[in-house]
């Protein structure tokens, strides 16, 4: 089966699944795409510095830091609430994001662009597939656009963000888990068919090519 990753390779499970169509033939139930064009940083307010940081983020990006596990975005910059006074900030077209955030002076910043592997997920069965993987209710009555969950998927720490109503999601896992997670995703999505638009990170993948 040319469309499946080869089980014959002794290290096949350590490499991300290849780009292309996987699982059930026909129209894919899940469409996935690695994003390697995003700058990522964690931002934590210092003790007593939350109000100053919120004001600085508003002034710099027009962005209101969310108080709970939500996403807020403005001007191509998004902040996801991961914990009290701690956010994950993502941006496209801003390679110096971490330096920009550090320049605000109101929080502790850690560059994470290479720390996370990012998958954008869509397709008619994407909610059903994610529901297999995460022990959090994704029903639209309780989890909708702009909601964020930090949890574990198949024992892999992950951040899941619903980015659109269709629904669409953005999923982040630690870079070193990206290959393993791609196999988990395939196992969950194979019954519906999975289209992966980009082979993504891995030993053979090009880095810093600005793909996506």
């Amino acid at each position: 089966m040319a469309e499946m990753s080869s089980p014959a390779h002794p290290l096949s499970h350590t490499r991300p699944i290849p780009a292309g169509h996987h699982g059930r033939p026909g129209t894919a139930g899940v469409v996935a795409r690695w994003r390697e064009d995003l700058a990522i940083a964690t931002l934590a307010a210092r003790h007593g510095g939350e109000a100053a940081l919120a004001a600085a983020m508003d002034a710099a990006f027009g962005l209101a830091l969310p108080a709970g596990p939500k996403a807020a975005g403005a001007n191509g910059v998004s902040a996801l609430g991961l914990a009290p006074r701690r956010w994950l900030v993502l941006a496209s077209q801003r390679p110096a994001l971490a330096a920009e955030l550090a320049g605000l002076g109101g929080g502790a910043v850690t560059e994470q662009s290479d720390g996370y592997a990012v998958l954008d997920l869509a397709g008619p069965e994407v909610r059903a597939v994610l529901a297999k993987l995460v022990a959090v209710d994704l029903d639209p009555a309780v989890f909708s656009t702009g909601d964020v969950v930090a949890s574990s998927l198949a024992h892999i720490g992950a951040v899941l963000w619903q980015t659109g109503e269709e629904p669409t999601y953005r999923l982040l896992v630690g870079t070193s888990f990206a290959a393993a997670f791609s196999h988990t995703l395939l196992a969950a999505a194979a019954e519906y068919g999975l289209d992966l638009a980009d082979a993504g990170r891995g030993p053979e993948a090009g880095r810093g090519t600005g793909r996506g």
Binding site: G68, A83, A135, V136
Partner: peptide, 11 residues
């Protein structure tokens, strides 16, 4: 209080 109701295995 931050994340909502979660399975005990996360803790």
């Amino acid at each position: 209080p931050f994340c909502g109701s979660r399975d005990a295995h996360e803790f």
